[in-house]
Structure formats: structure tokens, C-alpha cells
Design a protein around this nucleic acid. Structure first.
Length: 645
RNA sequence: GCCGGCGUAGCUCAGGGGUAGAGCAACUGAUUCGUAAUCAGUAGGUCCACAGUUCAAUUCUGUGCGCCGGCACCA
């Protein structure tokens, strides 16, 4: 007879198998009212699950964060019922809970529009108000297939058909509405509550495969209470204000126009930011033992054929042709084959390894139109690329050195936290399985030695080798791969790179492809969102504006600006005939970090009044001290003495 | 590339079958002012492009291009 152990360690005996509901009632009416589901020996299950063995139980109530996933999953079911009630003939497919909410994919001839949301939400609230119980039923596989086929739910039937035959098939009903579902669910639709909102419609391929039919997806967000929902919506609004496309326009950093889709026109301020970022990274690479090179933009097709890119990516390459010549040149989509050419130029010795060859390489790729996104995903971009030619024995050390370099770079730009994914062999790929086994094992081992923790990203490696992906998140929570480290045994083979070893024989080097930013464009986009345009002084494209209060101070303002400029600061002057309030506002809105205000007083005493962006007060300092202080503050983090990078 | 939405002044947006409006910015003039908007005036538009319907299209329809949100893709 089951003995139930609760989180406080207490134990309760029952003479017969019991459901979670019964246990909760036995403990008290408060818990019975609050319990939504339970963790049975660590696994979340319905309260109605029958417990016939000694077990540990933790009840999940609305207070627990775990309730969110249940609420969202149940909300997806409610959404599906509402949609089928309103739009007969619509087929249901899948509807999981996701971060912040849920979605459901429907098959319907006519797509949904946001105009439908009001009606759907109203219907959902009706269903929730009815509070129909979720009831679980195990069903025979063939019976289940027949059941859904009879209803005209061919997607559901397909799902069951594709489940392993060992899988237990369960249906969940809420009143008359029935869905194929693994569960678990809460007690009834009432438990969903009213803190939800439908957010957007989208197309999505059946089973995520572009060869399949496109379904209509409805996204929603759901929370435990109205306060949480409001907070989330507010946070979303705030995030939208940080959008790099918006800030790029407001701060006059860059623009993109129809004649050069996917390419960036960098304006003076944006390019200043770019150059600051570039100069920083160049110093870091120099210090880390990289040798910088520059390779051609247009390269004959034959090299891409050898490297395998022509075969794999031909339709994503920009091709150039010359009238009188019967040959194709490709705008390089990446730098690797070019770097191998430099490596191959002359006979290499093992003594030269590891050779770290870096290039800020301009690359062009014909990205699908739907993939373009501001400056984060473009067709013309500059990789902070490098290839490390090394021996197998050197992979671990080089991986550790790289992760260390990347971490400190990310830290300096204000990203102390980032995610690492390990992407293994994809389909299709080049190279033997044995070579892949080897490369994956080497990278895994390198991670172990370097103390790198990662999540798996199966099947997402490059076609020539496994990779580590270093992922940063944008303002509204989208993940972007920035850094990468790829172990490549194939390209050296294909392009015939070799070195003379200690034994006097010729050997293939391993190539490590690696990038920290990924592309300058993407990294700067994320950087803009990270700081919402309020850059730390060393990154700000305009660091100081000297603003006058009266025209009598114009000459002195010129002197002040010159002094800041001599100290290497990016300074502008504002001598316009406007009130100081207007000037403060204007430059605050422009997100200038420091305003140096000078009036008669300052001119007479040779001081400046410094006002920091976002602060109310000012600090009056002698000119020399202000210059010294700001110059020091504007020092890039890698140049601050005592700061070991 | 696919599904949906959108495209009006430099920017943010309103409007609507009879060839257009606001605020901010710009420009001109006045104002010399002490830390988030001084006042007045002026100028500014192929209403994304092309085709169709119509006496008349920026408005309706279609196609194309671009942008936005997803999906797919991301060497």
C-alpha cells in the first residue's frame, strides 16, 4: 500500500492506490483547492494519476514557476478548441508551450489574421469559464488513428502513425473536445485563468520541413496572473525601443536601401563605432598571436569547386562574369579557401604551427530574402575570421586559448554571459564517418580540457566539421550565433594543405575556423541593443558635446573642444543660439554620454560643467582635470593598465 | 524562398475615388537665456513601382519590389 512522502519529509500511508487529488484532500482543503498537478517521483503528471506504489510527491500550485508550463500547454488546447468551434473544418496539428507562451499550428485553407484574435480570445474565455475537466484516456494505436481519420484530422492520424509502436497513446478531453496529447494537464480549463493574450499569426511548415504544407500558427502568451502578463507586455514594449534598426536611425548610425538590399550604408557615427570595435579586436588578436592577412574578393570558380562550396552553396553565391572571358568568378562567401592558399604558399614546417591567420574578411552571401534582419543578417558582411592551422595535438590548447580570448572580449563588451552549443555532423556533409568521429571526439575532448560547458545542437555542424556556437541574445529574446569554433579535417585535404613534420614526412594540418563576433555587423547590432544606444564612453561615437550657454563663451568652448580632441576624445561643439535646456535635451535624446557646458562662469575660471547622460546634476571641474578624467574613462578596456586581458 | 501584415514629408504618424495633413526635424528672423523642448514665420510630397477598373486612382483590383512578424535557411 502506497506510502507518500511529501517535500517536508513527512510520510502518509494509504491502504489502497490513491490519486493525487485524494492525497491533496487528505492533507487539507487549501492544498486541494490550489494543487494543479504534481511531481510524482520527479515527473510532472496529472493530479488524477493513480499512485499504487511508495512515492515522493510535490504538488504544483499557481505559486510555483512550474505552473507556467502547465498553464501555457493547457492554453494551447483551449486555443485549439476555440478555433475549431469558430472555424469548422480547421484541422489541428501540434500546440506546445514555449518560452513566455504557447502556439498552435492549424491547417486551414484560409489563413488567420490578427483581426480574428478578438473572437478567438472571447471564445477561449468562454471555454475557460466553463471549466471542463481535462480527462486522460489511453487508447489503442489503430483505434486512435481511426478516430482521427474519421474526424478528418489527417495530421493527427499521421502523428500517431509516426510514433514508435511502443509508445502509449493518450487522448485528453476537455468536455466534448478531444486532442491527442502526452499530457500532463491541470484539472480543468478553468485553471488556465485569464492572464493570456494572442500575440501574432505566422506561417509554419508542417514538421518544420519546407517541402511540407504551410500551416497557420497562432502565438499566444500566458501567465499566472494579470500582473505577470502586464509586466511581460511592458517588457516587450521596452525591448522594442532597443531595436538596433530603430536606434540606428535615431542615432544616425547607418541605413539600408532598396538598391543594395542586405548591405549597409554606414554613416559617420556608425562607422566610428565600427572602427572602435575593429581597433579593439585587432589589438586583441595581435596580442593573442594572430597574423593578419587580406585576401581577394573575387575568386575563380575552380577554387570553390575544390573546397566543396560550389556544390553545397552555389545558389547562395554572387557570381561575377567578364564579357570577354569565359569564366566565372565568385564574390567570396567566406575566407577559408583563400587562407589555405596563403598557407600553401611555400613549404610549411611543423615549427610554424599553430599558425593563426586572421582576416577581417568581407564576404557576400545571397541570403534568402526572408532571412534578412536589420544589420544582424545581411548579404554583405565582414567576418572577424581566422584559421588556425595546427596539429591534432594542438586542438585542445588552441580551443582553450580561443574560448579564453572570446570570453574576455565578450566581457569587455558587456556580455559576461553567453551560451555555448556543440553542433555535430549534419546531412549532407563531406568526409568519412571515421574522420567525423575523430573530429567530434577531438572537439569534445578539447572542451573537457578547457572546461567548456555546452548544450548539444545535433546535426547543426558545418558540412566540413563539427562546431561550437557562441550565442548572444538580442533585445527581444532572439538568439544569434556570433562566435564559432569549427574543427575541420576536410578542407586541408581538399585543398591539399600540408606541412613537414618532425619526422621529415608530409602531414595534413587540422584547420580550426573561428570567429568571435561572427560578423562585425551582427555583433554591432547586438551591441546597440545591449546598451540601447547608451554606450559606455569608450564605444560612444560622439563622446562629448561642448555646449555654450551664451555666445560670449564661444571662444572658450572652442578651446575646451580642442583640449578634448587632443586627448583623443570624439567631441562636437554646440554654439547654437538656444537655451541650455534645449541643448541638454537635444544631446540627451541623441544619447551623447557627456555634455560639457560652458558659460561665462566657466570661461572666467577655465572650468567646465560636466553633465552625464541620464543624471540630473553636474560636476564643475578645472578644464585639465575634466580632460584627464574623461580621457581615462574613455580608455578601451584592453588598454587599461593593470587590466590583464 | 514560404505564410501573413505593412509601404503617405528627413523622422513618427493621421487621412481618404475629385491629385494631401499634424507634430518633431530643416530653413529664415527675433531672442543671449545656467542644465530635458523660447517665439514667430518659411519651405518641404511622382502618397513604393508598373498595369487594370473608372469621367477621375495616392485611395479599389492585380503584379513586382521593399520592409515588419514568424517558418525554412544560416558554409
Amino acid at each position: 500500500m502506497p506510502a507518500i512522502t511529501l517535500p517536508d519529509g513527512s510520510e502518509r500511508q494509504f491502504d489502497a492506490p490513491v490519486t493525487g487529488t485524494t492525497v491533496a484532500e487528505a492533507i487539507g482543503p487549501g492544498l486541494a483547492r490550489a494543487a494543479l498537478a504534481m511531481k510524482l517521483d520527479g515527473k510532472t503528471v496529472d493530479l488524477a494519476t493513480l499512485i499504487d506504489h511508495d512515492a515522493n510527491i510535490v504538488f504544483i500550485t499557481r505559486r510555483d514557476p512550474e505552473a507556467l508550463e502547465l498553464i501555457r500547454h493547457d492554453a494551447a488546447h483551449v486555443l485549439a478548441e476555440a478555433v475549431q468551434a469558430l472555424y469548422p473544418g480547421t484541422q489541428v496539428t501540434i500546440g506546445p508551450s514555449i518560452e513566455n507562451g504557447f502556439y498552435y499550428d492549424f491547417a486551414r485553407n484560409e489563413p488567420f489574421t490578427p483581426d480574428d484574435f478578438a473572437a478567438i480570445e472571447a471564445k477561449m474565455r468562454e471555454i475557460i469559464a466553463k471549466g471542463a475537466k481535462f480527462e486522460r484516456r489511453v487508447i489503442d494505436r489503430d483505434e486512435a488513428i481511426g478516430f482521427f481519420q474519421a474526424k478528418g484530422e489527417k495530421y493527427k492520424a499521421q502523428l500517431i502513425q509516426d510514433l514508435p509502436t511502443t509508445e502509449t497513446i493518450t487522448l485528453y478531453s476537455q468536455g466534448d473536445w478531444i486532442d491527442l496529447c502526452r499530457g500532463p494537464h491541470m484539472r480543468s480549463t478553468a485553471d488556465v485563468g485569464n492572464a493570456f493574450r494572442l500575440m501574432k499569426v505566422a506561417g509554419a511548415y508542417w514538421r518544420g520541413d519546407h517541402r511540407n504544407a504551410m500551416l497557420s500558427r497562432i502565438y499566444g502568451t500566458a501567465w499566472r496572473d494579470q500582473k505577470e502578463l502586464d509586466a511581460y507586455l511592458h517588457q516587450l514594449e521596452e525591448a522594442e525601443r532597443r531595436d538596433h534598426r530603430k536606434i540606428g536611425k535615431e542615432m544616425d548610425l547607418f541605413h539600408i536601401q532598396e538598391e543594395a538590399v542586405g548591405s549597409i550604408f554606414w554613416h559617420p557615427k556608425g562607422w566610428k563605432l565600427y572602427r572602435t570595435v575593429e581597433a579593439y579586436l585587432r589589438r586583441r588578436l595581435d596580442a593573442a598571436g594572430y597574423q593578419e592577412v587580406k585576401t581577394p574578393q573575387l575568386v575563380d570558380r575552380s577554387l570553390w569547386e575544390k573546397s566543396g562550396h560550389w556544390e553545397n552553396y552555389r545558389e547562395h553565391m554572387f557570381i561575377a562574369q567578364v564579357v570577354d572571358e569565359d569564366k566565372f568568378l565568385a564574390l567570396k562567401p567566406m575566407n577559408c579557401p583563400c587562407h589555405v592558399q596563403i598557407f600553401r604558399h611555400g613549404l610549411r614546417s611543423y615549427r610554424e604551427l599553430p599558425m593563426r591567420m586572421a582576416e577581417f574578411g568581407s564576404c557576400h552571401r545571397y541570403e534568402p530574402s526572408g532571412a534578412l534582419h536589420g544589420i544582424m543578417r545581411v548579404r554583405a558582411f565582414t567576418q572577424d575570421d581566422a584559421h588556425i592551422f595546427c596539429t591534432e595535438d594542438q586542438i585542445a590548447t588552441e580551443t582553450a586559448r580561443f574560448v579564453d580570448l572570446l570570453s574576455t572580449v565578450y566581457r569587455d563588451f558587456g556580455f559576461p554571459d553567453f551560451r555555448i552549443k556543440f553542433a555535430d555532423r549534419p546531412e549532407p556533409r563531406i568526409g568519412s564517418d571515421a574522420a567525423w568521429d575523430h573530429a567530434e571526439a577531438a572537439l569534445r575532448e578539447a572542451c573537457a580540457i578547457a572546461g567548456v560547458e555546452y548544450e548539444l545542437n545535433p546535426g547543426e555542424g558545418a558540412f566540413y566539421g563539427p562546431k561550437l556556437e557562441f550565442v548572444l541574445r538580442d533585445a527581444i529574446g532572439r538568439d544569434w550565433q556570433c562566435g564559432t569554433l569549427q574543427v575541420d579535417p576536410n578542407l586541408p585535404e581538399r585543398l591539399d594543405a600540408e606541412y613537414v613534420g618532425e619526422d621529415g614526412a608530409r602531414h595534413r594540418p587540422i584547420m580550426l575556423h573561428r570567429a568571435i563576433f561572427g560578423s562585425f555587423e551582427r555583433f554591432i547590432g547586438i551591441l546597440i541593443e545591449q546598451y540601447a544606444g547608451r554606450f559606455p564612453l569608450w564605444l560612444a561615437p560622439v563622446q562629448v558635446v561642448v555646449a555654450t550657454i551664451v555666445s560670449d563663451a564661444d571662444d572658450y568652448a572652442g578651446e575646451v573642444a580642442a583640449a578634448f580632441a587632443r586627448a583623443g576624445l570624439a567631441v562636437n561643439t554646440d554654439l547654437t543660439n538656444q537655451k541650455i535646456n534645449a541643448k541638454v535635451r537635444e544631446h540627451s535624446v541623441a544619447l551623447v554620454p557627456v555634455l560639457a557646458v560652458v558659460g561665462r562662469k566657466e570661461a572666467e575660471t577655465r572650468t567646465v560643467a560636466l553633465r552625464r547622460l541620464g543624471s540630473q546634476g553636474q560636476e564643475i571641474l578645472p578644464l585639465e582635470e575634466a580632460v584627464a578624467r574623461l580621457a581615462s574613462e574613455a580608455t578601451p578596456p584592453d588598454l587599461i593598465s593593470g587590466n590583464v586581458a
